[in-house]
């Protein structure tokens, strides 16, 4: 029964991964996200950029489909999600697992120690950068009123255009309240971001990628978030300055942008 399957997504994921392994990468893979120019909020944009970078790094072809209702369409309620044949997979980690199951792997020649180190860095990004982005986008008074809420509500007619952003803000506030980020000041948040960048900068050092000469999913994740912080113009943008203070991270973003995105455009 449909209802039973939806109640245990893990089983479905395992099932999808199993089936997926036997099929090649179809030609009509689609990545769904909100409209990049008018609608998407920058934390979501960072997630989408990470997934796109990861897929490009794997050398996989896909088409980006922009939908105003991408968030509601997604099986997990979060963007981005990819539509591969009969499967829908949302968010970076499940997408990585799905792509790996199809035989595309960026980290096949890494040792177990390196892999768990990479995982540790990835969860640091999740727990610091993602929360910092949400804090700035939704809890900072100026940014949320001037940028985030109008963008989030733009596809809808009044009064949904103000009700839906308020509802989303409430959800984000509840999430940040449960992990203790809600009561931080902007200075504390900046300090967290600085620590995170410091750690990343030290790991990267002068290498082209975080783990030597080949890209990994950590590179995709870091690029997605740092590039978004560097390029999003906000009325209050303390994060861009923080990232700029680490020249090797800024150079890393530029390098990946040129290698995987400028090429794609040509």
């Amino acid at each position: 029964m449909a209802g039973d399957m939806s109640s245990s997504p893990l089983v479905v994921d395992a099932f999808q991964a199993e089936i997926g392994a036997s099929e090649p990468w179809p030609v009509d893979v689609c990545l769904y996200q909100q409209y990049a120019a008018e609608q998407i909020t920058f934390p979501d944009y960072a997630h989408c950029l990470s997934v796109k970078t990861f897929l490009y790094m794997c050398g996989l072809d896909f088409r980006v489909e922009q939908k105003t209702n991408a968030e509601e369409m997604s099986p997990s309620g979060k963007v981005p999600f990819i539509h591969v044949g009969a499967f829908l997979v949302s968010e970076l980690d499940p997408i990585i697992a799905f792509v790996n199951a199809r035989g595309f792997n960026l980290v096949s020649d890494m040792s177990d120690t390196e892999r768990s180190e990479m995982r540790a860095y990835m969860s640091m990004i999740e727990s610091i950068l993602v929360n910092a982005e949400l804090y700035l986008a939704w809890l900072d008074e100026t940014v949320s009123t001037e940028i985030t809420k109008p963008r989030y509500g733009c596809p809808y007619p009044w009064p949904l255009s103000w009700m839906l952003p308020l509802r989303k803000q409430k959800d984000v506030r509840a999430r940040l309240s449960s992990n203790g980020w809600k009561d931080k000041t902007i200075e504390q948040v900046c300090e967290e971001v600085r620590t995170c960048c410091q750690a990343l900068s030290e790991r990267l050092d002068e290498q082209p990628y975080f783990f030597g000469d080949n890209p990994t999913e950590l590179d995709a994740l870091v690029f997605g978030h740092l590039y978004t912080l560097l390029t999003t113009s906000l009325p209050e943008g303390p994060f861009a300055e923080i990232v700029q203070k680490f020249p090797n991270l800024a150079a890393f973003c530029k390098r990946i942008d040129e290698k995987f995105f400028k090429q794609e455009e040509n």
Binding site: A2, S6, K67, T68, E72, Y156, L160
Partner: peptide, 24 residues
């Protein structure tokens, strides 16, 4: 009326899923 339509389960067809979202 504000209507919030969502897919019922993972097996919902894509043609229906595409219509998920808010309408007024």
């Amino acid at each position: 009326v504000w209507r919030d339509l969502r897919s019922l389960s993972r097996t919902t067809s894509f043609a229906v899923r595409e219509q998920a979202g808010h309408s007024l």
